[in-house]
Simulated assay, not measured.
Amino acid sequence: MHSTMTLWIVFAVAGLTGLNGVSGTPAETVTLDDVNTSAHPNSALETLEGEENFWKPTVVVVVVEAEEEVMETGELNPSHYPAQRAAKVVQHYINTQHGSPYKVFGLQRVFRANAEDVSDSGRKYHLELSVQEMVHNTTLACTAEVLFPGGEKTEHWPQVQVSSCDELLKIDTSAQEEALYQKYNMNHSLSTQNLPDSNGHIEPDHEPFWHLGTVASSFVMFRESTQNTLYNMAQVDNATQLATEKDQLKFDYHVLLHDLVSQEIIPWKLLVTWSPLEGVKVQKMEKSSNCRHCNKSQP
């Protein structure tokens, strides 16, 4: 068993369910006027995984002191990081399979978790958790298994199986999606940046593209996730619509991802396509040095 003691300073929007139940002590509540968001971009931007009012620009400064039993097997504390990391992978997986500009999934709570070593295959987590569809504020309890591959595997990203979430995945957004598709298929007019801005605000017309960027970012976070990472979406740095190809709307996204373990803000460049029929696809993804915030030192 390998035990490590870490002390993290985490800035999170009040009501952030991605950290719901994680060991920590709320030290102070501040408004965005008190925070230097250029120095701490994550402090004002992790707004996705909140409850129904997750746009509110109130920031809770949380000091997290967690002792991690990284290789612990059997029943896990659902509020500790090994269980939370595995559960976040479930969130990202569901977004890659079912997310859209009008359907975005977030982790709400982990009820039970256990882990086991599976011979040479890796390490498997069994989870009981609740998942929230953020746009419609609908929550459902699910069960899931997450396998982090071990050994010399060709594919190193996790393997996920989810059950009991069928009703959550059936939310009908077809009319909204068709209207959005027809509007932007005709004029190719999207060009935006800073979603959300330093005040936590997003123009209503751009909210679907914040959702789309969040879903597309889940493709990256899912593939990059390990037992030693905990990723959140921070911000759409900028997004530009490209010419439509094969009936797919096409976008160039620059997004900022926050790894709570390293406290890094990591920029990625994504080539994203979407249509109501084909869903969200990420054609290319690469780490980028083109980030207006990421050269700022972190606390």
Rank of each mutant, 00 (worst) to 15 (best):
175 A>N: 02
278 E>N: 09
131 V>Q: 07
230 L>V: 02
109 R>N: 03
150 G>L: 05
38 S>A: 13
4 T>H: 12
42 N>Y: 09
49 E>W: 07
257 L>R: 01
202 I>W: 09
168 L>G: 01
127 L>W: 02
278 E>I: 01
176 Q>N: 11
57 P>V: 01
23 S>H: 15
279 G>I: 11
154 T>E: 15
229 T>S: 06
157 W>S: 13
131 V>W: 04
218 S>I: 00
162 V>F: 03
187 N>W: 05
237 D>E: 12
146 V>P: 08
247 D>P: 02
201 H>Y: 12
13 V>T: 09
97 Q>V: 05
242 L>P: 00
9 I>T: 15
195 L>V: 07
3 S>Y: 13
57 P>M: 08
252 D>W: 07
141 A>W: 00
20 N>A: 13
165 C>H: 09
298 Q>P: 03
89 V>I: 11
18 G>D: 07
252 D>S: 03
11 F>R: 11
295 N>E: 14
185 N>C: 06
100 S>K: 01
9 I>L: 15
241 Q>Y: 06
224 E>F: 00
56 K>G: 11
220 V>E: 04
186 M>Y: 01
18 G>A: 15
208 P>A: 04
58 T>V: 15
64 V>E: 02
290 N>I: 08
175 A>D: 12
280 V>T: 04
267 P>R: 02
235 Q>A: 01
281 K>S: 08
233 M>L: 05
83 A>E: 06
120 D>N: 12
292 R>S: 00
229 T>N: 03
154 T>Q: 15
199 N>K: 14
241 Q>T: 09
40 H>D: 12
215 V>K: 01
283 Q>C: 09
219 F>L: 10
46 E>F: 07
169 L>F: 05
46 E>K: 11
83 A>I: 08
83 A>N: 03
156 H>N: 14
231 Y>K: 09
209 F>W: 07
